[in-house]
Amino acid sequence: MENEALLNAQATVLAGQAIGAGLAMIAGIGPGIGEGYAVGKAIETIGRQPEIKGTATSTMFIGCAVAETTGIYGLFVALMLLFANPFLKFLG
């Protein structure tokens, strides 16, 4: 009987982790929009001043990589939930 309760609790925790991982990846929306905006602006800049293409492109990549950080945090949380099972140990 107790074993069954533990199994149920484990199943609940695993389901919660899977849902949480999915929710964590909502963080991907922000960087997506932000990076798209940045790339659009960079293309506008290159269209206006083609001579600074190199600088604009490298600056854009750096900016994109920094803007990506929040999305990567979300991905990291999702990975932790999916593969590290941090909450299972609370069941004892």
Binding site: A65, E68, T69, I72, Y73, L75, F76, L79
Partner: peptide
């Protein structure tokens, strides 16, 4: 933290 996670997260996401 962000420097480590950025590189790891990008490559791990790609690998997955």
């Amino acid at each position: 933290v962000s420097m480590a996670l950025r590189m790891f997260g990008n490559m791990a996401g790609g690998m997955i």
